[in-house]
């Protein structure tokens, strides 16, 4: 909507002032990667670099959450929050969850409340991980939409792009002395962005594909790669589901209470044999490779049909976390090779 720029230090000072009044989460280094932390006193915060290890869904639907009770308790709105440094892939991931929980026939009010009360400040991904492959999806590693505000680095300043009226309001609240963005600033930002994309291209040269992933998956129901990866290599650790920012499946666990019950909504995984198993023991996906294939079908075929794009952002978390050492890019590459004969 509008572009501004400001000194990086001034931006951070303003953010920490906000953090005294409301919940603001920023990125910090932890082990090999980044994680979100609640900002309080002024500390180091990573504005750019790359996506965090943890998927964005942790902020919107939790590994286990109380979702209903008997007798019924009144609904409570979620607290206001700001997420700082959200990468393009995680903003993309929210499109899938929004489709299911927010814009479908039936709204999930807890999710909706968390979304409505969370301000998303995106930032360009300047250092893609070795497992990142958003580029292979034809996506960019810098946010182009779905943010309230986005930040791009400019030497000692940050370029601020507002993407929603809410973002504009927040920016006004920060009370910064903003400068105009010049042609040269935009040129610099675009040059930087081309460089990040070049890095991604280099990382992913071995996995380049011709057909869209959706077409590859749709045409490969009989491919032998499913058995190689899904049966021989997959150890069913579920990292590819639990760590994936677009996976949203869940189960209920109802626990007895003195005079009623508490219902928890827990993340589930379609890789689990029990996921589709009926009480008779019958299941439509008996073999591990069939469940492995289903994970791809769901993201690249079924959801692609509904969304118009893959429900995979290329964030690479499933590759990073896989205990069976399976690289999704390689699987898709091998599938294309097979269907091309």
């Amino acid at each position: 909507m509008a572009y501004h720029k400001v000194k990086t230090e001034a931006w951070l000072d303003a953010i920490f002032r906000q953090a005294k009044e409301k919940a603001v989460y920023g990125l910090k280094r932890s082990g090999q990667g980044l994680v979100y932390q609640r900002l309080r006193e002024k500390t180091d915060v990573v504005l750019f670099e790359t996506r965090p290890t943890e998927p964005i869904k942790l902020f919107f639907y939790f590994p286990s959450e109380l979702t209903a009770t008997l007798p019924e308790e009144p609904f409570r709105e979620e607290e206001k929050r700001v997420l700082l440094g959200v990468k393009a892939c995680d903003l993309e991931a929210l499109k899938t969850a929004d489709f299911v929980y927010r814009f479908g026939d039936v709204v999930e009010p807890h999710y909706e409340s968390r979304r409505n009360n969370t301000l998303l400040i995106g930032s360009d991904c300047t250092q893609p991980n070795p497992t990142c492959f958003c580029s292979l999806h034809g996506r960019s590693c810098y946010p182009q939409d779905y943010f309230d505000i986005n930040l791009s680095p400019l030497n000692k300043e940050v370029m601020i792009e507002t993407g929603s009226p809410r973002g504009e309001e927040f920016l006004a609240e920060l009370n910064l002395s903003l400068s105009e963005v010049t042609e040269a600033d935009l040129k610099l930002r675009d040059k930087n962005r081309r460089e990040y994309m070049e890095k991604l291209k280099t990382i992913n040269t071995p996995f380049e594909h011709q057909k869209p992933y959706s077409e590859i998956v749709r045409k490969s129901s009989e491919a032998t790669a499913w058995k190689k990866y899904g049966q021989e290599m997959c150890v069913q650790c579920h990292a590819c589901n639990l760590g994936c920012p677009t996976c949203y499946c869940f189960s209920f666990s109802d626990l007895p209470e003195k005079s009623g019950m508490k219902r928890y909504k827990n993340w589930d995984s379609c890789l689990a044999a029990s996921f589709a198993q009926m009480s008779s023991g019958a299941t439509p996906r008996h073999n591990r490779w069939e469940r492995f294939r289903y994970h791809y079908y769901h993201k690249f075929d079924f959801l692609n049909t509904s969304l118009g794009f893959d429900a995979c952002t290329g964030c690479g978390r499933c590759i990073e976390g896989c205990l069976g050492k399976i690289d999704k890019r390689q699987v898709l590459f091998d599938l294309e090779k097979e269907i091309n004969g």
């Binding site: 299911v100 929980y101 479908g104 026939d105 039936v106 999930e108 949203y248 499946c249 869940f250 189960s251 209920f252 589930d268 379609c270 996921f275 589709a276 439509p284 289903y294 769901h298 079924f302």
Partner: peptide
Amino acid sequence: VCGLGHCQHCG
């Protein structure tokens, strides 16, 4: 599980 199109169990 959910009965209403969210959980994906019934695919």
